[in-house]
Design a protein around this nucleic acid. Structure first.
Length: 319
DNA sequence: TAGGCCATCTGGTCCT
DNA sequence: AGGACCAGATGGCCTA
């Protein structure tokens, strides 16, 4: 239950996140609410008094917002409606925040203790969708650094640090410049961030060797160039003035690229802590799950299969 | 202390 | 008429 009953002022003062936020009566008069109630009761009378305080042109002498004048009894009804509207608005915003919290949980780097801000959550989600879309459409094993750089594009430095930290990267490797561009400098802790170091750029989808040779040495790669190749014509961040609202992320698999519907949200929440898990492949209506165990996002598996390592992968992103 | 982030209130607009 | 949605204003909390 997100909505706190409006009738309970004490409850109203506690947000769902535990913080105390002021109500309007706090703002105007923090001493007590009785004064506010008394003030409300006198609304109509005040209107009458203000009516007398006018200049020769009939304009009010007092500065500040004027209260509307209502016939007898109507002011009270307007007040009630305003209170009800406030309650609905609070409920609506709580629902919005709840949805945002759900979004936080399915983008990388979810943390209960260090929550992403609203705007950063939206940016990261957009980048995440973009990066996954690009990876799927490319049909190649991702360059993880490029993937992370895409995730961090346009994010604030603290959020970039958080993402990098979640991936056990040295955040200094992902420097965000003044334009929001993320550039790479330095050598990544490749084995730590890339669970399948055998990745061979250019390996066709589903044809990866699948071997996990963690001893394979890190191969130098032009990460920034790879990253840029993701954006020949568009950027996931607002740096490209043509992106927002005009360019959609790449569509994959015959134009079908969808998150699992919310109708069984419980299962969705259970299975999707890490992020996007299901996609409708080739319009066949089958739900496939991207298996981190199978070198996500290359190997698509029927949803019926279970992957014990999913939680392990989630651990890498969520702390 | 300034700035970022947030919840809340509020009035306006649009839609049913 | 009433509800949903939106944006501006406001003030509290937190952090660098």
């Amino acid at each position: 239950m997100l909505t706190v009953p409006f009738e309970d002022p004490d409850m109203m003062r506690e947000s769902q996140f535990g913080a105390r936020f002021p109500r309007q009566d706090d703002v105007h008069d923090s001493s007590n609410t009785d004064h506010k109630e008394a003030e409300d009761d006198n609304t109509d009378r005040e209107d009458e008094e203000r009516e007398e305080d006018r200049d020769e042109n009939g304009l009010p002498n007092k500065k500040g917002p004027r209260k509307k004048k209502f016939p007898n009894g109507r002011g009270e009804r307007v007040k009630v409606r305003r209170q009800e509207a406030n309650a609905r608005e609070r409920s609506r915003m709580h629902g919005l925040n709840d949805a945002l919290e759900s979004l936080r949980k399915v983008v990388p780097c979810y943390s209960k203790t260090q929550k992403l801000s609203k705007i950063e959550t939206l940016r990261l989600a957009k980048n995440y969708i973009w990066a996954l879309s690009e990876t799927l459409s490319a049909g190649k094993k991702p360059d993880l650094l490029a993937f992370v750089q895409t995730l961090c594009k346009g994010l604030s430095q603290p959020t970039t640090n958080l993402v990098a930290g979640c991936l056990q990267l040295n955040s200094r490797n992902f420097l965000t410049d003044q334009n929001g561009e993320v550039s790479f400098s330095g050598r990544p802790q490749y084995d730590a961030l890339y669970p399948y170091p055998n990745a061979e750029m250019g390996t066709p989808t589903g044809l990866s060797s699948g071997t996990r040779d963690s001893a394979k040495p890190f191969r130098p790669y032009n990460y920034y160039a790879s990253y840029e190749s993701y954006y020949d014509s568009a950027s996931p961040e607002g740096n490209s003035p043509h992106f927002d609202g005009q360019i959609s992320p790449p569509i994959n698999y015959n134009g079908i690229f969808s998150l699992k519907k919310h109708e069984d949200q419980v299962e969705y929440s259970k299975n999707c802590h890490y992020g996007m898990r299901y996609c409708n492949v080739a319009g066949r209506g089958s739900m496939y799950r991207v298996s981190p165990d199978g070198h996500f996002p290359y190997d698509l598996h029927p949803r019926s299969q279970s992957y014990q390592s999913q939680d392990e992968l989630n651990t890498g992103f969520h702390n």
